Simulated scan of single mutants.
Amino acid sequence: MSPGTINSTPDAVDFLIEQHGRIRQLFLETAQASDVEERERKFFELRRLLAVHETAEEEIVHPRARREIGDGPAIVDARLEEEKKAKKQLAELEAIDIDSVEFEVKLDGLRRAVLAHAEHEESEEFTRLHQELDADALARMRSTVELAEAMAPTRPHPGVESATANALVGPFAAMMDRAKDMITKPRH
């Protein structure tokens, strides 16, 4: 399932929450994979979804939340700090043998951090965006989120957690990531 295949809602917030559900499922599937090849495929999908999802939030959702909700800047800054830490954890995880105990331990640490981050987003940011924006604005935001995801890097880039940084680094990083993905994509 690619990030854009969730089609049950035109609402950006609900779309992102559905992606959070898919991320939760991919963590479980990666951890429970029956063999190295399956774990590699699931981790590849998880890493890609995390990267494009966070980029879209950084480029589209967080700037809107900064403007639209009370305490927006403080809420977004806290989420960006969580995203930066998770990107570092994900980048470290990529360098570890996928069949090792260390991978399993670090994957679980990343899972806990990402799920706590998603919970904070849903309760502190997304719920409030739902309250502040009408259905048309949320539908337009979904289209913009999907466009951002289509052009987003597919690997973690710690330190690139703002709309400005994503605009400057994102296109080149996305091109390089997609080239790496073609070379390293799991076989099955």
Rank of each mutant, 00 (worst) to 15 (best):
G4K: 00
N7D: 11
S8T: 15
P10D: 07
D11I: 05
D11L: 10
A12G: 08
V13G: 02
V13N: 03
F15D: 01
L16T: 01
I17Q: 09
E18C: 03
E18I: 03
E18M: 08
E18T: 01
Q19I: 05
Q19R: 06
G21F: 03
G21M: 01
R22F: 02
I23M: 02
R24L: 06
Q25I: 02
L26M: 04
L26I: 03
F27T: 01
F27W: 07
L28Q: 08
E29G: 00
A31N: 05
S34I: 11
S34L: 14
V36I: 15
V36T: 15
R39D: 03
E40I: 00
K42Q: 13
K42Y: 04
E45V: 01
L46T: 02
L46V: 08
R48Y: 05
L50W: 07
A51V: 10
V52W: 02
V52F: 02
V52C: 06
H53I: 08
H53C: 03
E54K: 09
E54S: 12
E54R: 08
T55Q: 08
T55E: 07
T55P: 00
A56F: 04
A56S: 14
V61W: 04
R64K: 15
E68D: 10
G72I: 12
G72V: 11
P73E: 08
A78Q: 12
A78V: 10
E83W: 01
E83P: 01
E83R: 04
E83M: 06
K85S: 14
A86E: 03
A86W: 02
A86V: 05
K88S: 13
Q89C: 00
V101W: 10
E102K: 15
E102L: 15
F103R: 09
E104T: 13
E104H: 11
V105Q: 12
K106S: 03
L107V: 08
D108F: 04
D108T: 08
G109K: 14
R111A: 09
R111C: 03
R112P: 00
A113Y: 00
L115R: 01
E121G: 07
E124G: 07
E124R: 10
E125H: 05
F126L: 06
F126Y: 15
F126H: 08
T127C: 01
L129K: 04
L129S: 05
Q131D: 09
E132N: 04
L133F: 03
D134L: 04
D134Y: 08
A135S: 14
D136R: 14
L138I: 05
A139C: 07
A139K: 13
R140S: 12
M141C: 06
M141K: 01
S143N: 11
V145T: 10
A148F: 02
A148G: 02
E149H: 02
A150P: 01
M151S: 05
A152I: 04
A152G: 01
P156V: 06
P156S: 11
P156T: 07
P156M: 09
P156I: 06
H157A: 10
H157K: 11
P158C: 14
G159Y: 08
V160L: 09
E161T: 15
E161F: 10
S162I: 11
S162R: 12
T164M: 12
T164W: 13
T164A: 13
T164K: 13
A165E: 12
A167Q: 14
A167Y: 03
L168N: 09
L168Q: 12
A179I: 15
A179K: 12
A179L: 13
M182N: 13
I183E: 05
T184P: 00
K185A: 15
R187Q: 14
